[in-house]
Design a protein around this nucleic acid. Structure first.
Lengths: 214, 214, 214, 214
DNA sequence: AATGAATGAGAATTCATTCAT
DNA sequence: GATGAATGAATTCTCATTCAT
């Protein structure tokens, strides 16, 4: 009985202990993102994650079973907000296909490319072959949905006469490709040749929309 | 053709022993590409490289000072053919800009995406932050030249009236982006959703050329 | 019976709180016996002892200073009843030496071999070299007394003409050896070749008494 | 061809390298016996084994996959000579059963109790529950054979009228028990109460043979 | 030149012990 | 008193690198 009450109570307000635990867990995930992004999975040291999170080595293992678990949970945790973001964009059926596509891409540039999340993107590409289930998860939840969304917009555009009919194998990937490349560029080559995401975005949209135009 | 000539020349120029050394060096570089591609730099074992090349662990150190040296030299060595490839394409001033762009991209798909070299591309993205000089080298020698080439074609196209004038920040990247994404996709997501490079290429070219069209 | 009396007495003597403490202490000792028996001293985890006793890790340290202390106190605590048992048997001077020896061995089979206490015996053998003071305690209090007892019975038997005079170096050990081996066998080899303690005991007594017979 | 020659040659005389490797392997097994005997499996440090063998930490892993492997291989290796010893004793069908039994026990005292091998015996008892396959191996190869041997001698003795007929459940164990106890005693309690194996042996044999006598 | 045995620094992981709540 | 989160020393195991053969 009291357990139920406790449970209810805790849903509204976790005990201080639980709060702190959850906060520390989040801090560890942040630290993990930072460290793994910096050096990749294999070269990352659990000790560094611990220091980055301000705890001791052993503490990391109170929250995550192993380095691999930490990595996977971090990636998943950091991906999840993307999913809700994606859902958020899905609305706006009153816009034209052109506007919707532009809005989508804008959203991606803002939410993903301009934040820590682009690191996740790069990690997936870098470590994907070593962590197939993460790659699969990313594909199923992010890429697939992205493709579906773009596909739907194209269909709307074709129906409304905004876009021409295109065969389509790899169309969604080609539409989004510029954004991906921007993200990678920022992380790898920006120091040698910086790009400005805003004007880069304009070019991207201009090129693609023109390419799709009927 | 030129390869044969080079080979013959070197056979005469190099003593048998020197030839064997050079062959073993090349075998080690191939082995290194295979192993580093498979698991990344940090997780790769020198022992695996040795085995893959059919020599013993100690032998690797007769040819390369350290794991890092091996990695860097391998990446540079495997990049170099791209440079000569690139140079080869530069000719053909008799083609239209449209044809040239198509030819360029085709060439990239064939030579890079459809070969081991796409691994190099991925390695640069994965390990770039840990090996800034490699990233810089790649940028200076591959990306920069690619951008220049594309830029030149665009100019030609604009001059000839084939292409419209576009502002251009990130234009080259956006034009090439589809190819990059194809390469990464093949390496990371192909098992979940295979893409056919030939039709993907058609979509890519179709979209881009239409996007550029005046 | 005497246990109940003791218990009642102590219930009056000790406050409720003190009782609870004492009960928890006993529960911890039981848990410690179980865990240490299962995996030995070094491999045992304080956490497992805590769980086995139904308390948290920290609580164990409220009762015992360290893992080593817990181990030693547990062994001593679990040995003590053997001492009182031994004392109990010492009586019965009206029996023949033959009967007394048989009774003694019977008692040992019942009280030690057929209970958790055989684990103590094995722990002493396994950990003795690492805990010399425990080994010494065991030797002084159990083995020495056992030898004395057996020696006394032999003397009685020789005096009464039941037993022959034997030189005696290691006689007591040889008389008791079968029982020790039975205990170890039960713990280590029983799953490969089970022994039945009752008939084993008969063989043991038969062989020894015949061996001693005048 | 040369391989065959090499193989033949090496059977007679291993290459120096191979010799040294084999020697080091044996040294490591000796070191392992020493260390594991001293502190048991769980408390033993690979580092100590390495030092005891005069090599570095990493070297141990060139010869044995893990601590567990080292332990098991050591126990098996150290057991094997017992097997051949046992086989050696089996002969002598011209002796009386009494003489044979005495010879057997003598042999066991000399070969096992009076050497490092008694440590193996204790390790099996101490670690058996944690390493069931070792316990099984010991049971199948040492204990079982010992029982069979003793059983055969008893039969011979009964047939010849030297021994009485005994029911026999646990007879072999009871006959050998004194020797086992002697071994354990030497390792655990000798410092508190030393025993002299020679006179202890006499008592053992005297008691048992008298116990078996018709 | 080639080998592969040996080294030892380094990293993941465990767990006895402490201590704030 | 009790809890269980946190610590960090200690240990197993790995692997780049060296070096005797």
């Amino acid at each position: 009985m009291s357990e139920l009450i406790d449970a209810n109570t805790s849903k509204e307000a976790l005990s201080k202990r639980e709060q702190q635990k959850e906060n520390k867990r989040l801090a560890l995930l942040d630290a993990a993102l930072a460290v793994f992004s910096r050096v990749g999975f294999a070269a990352a040291k659990m000790d560094d994650v611990a220091h980055e999170a301000g705890v001791s080595k052993g503490t990391v293992y109170l929250y995550f079973d192993s380095k691999e678990t930490l990595f996977k949970e971090m990636v998943r945790a950091k991906m999840t907000p993307m999913l809700t973001d994606v859902a958020e964009v899905l609305g706006h059926p009153d816009m034209s296909a052109t506007e919707r596509l532009k809005a989508h891409l804008k959203f991606f540039y803002k939410k993903v490319l301009n934040s820590d999340r682009r690191q996740i993107m790069r990690l997936i590409m870098a470590e994907g072959p070593n962590f197939p289930d993460l790659a699969e998860f990313y594909h199923a939840n992010i890429l697939n949905r992205g493709q579906a969304m773009i596909g739907a917009i194209i269909q709307q555009g074709v129906a409304s006469g905004e876009f021409r009919q295109m065969e389509g194998h790899g169309l969604a990937q080609n539409i989004a490709a510029g954004a991906l490349v921007a993200g990678i560029w920022k992380l790898v080559f920006d120091r040698f040749q910086p790009i400005d995401l805003d004007t880069y975005f304009d070019t991207h949209v201009d090129l693609i929309l023109n390419g799709l135009k009927a």
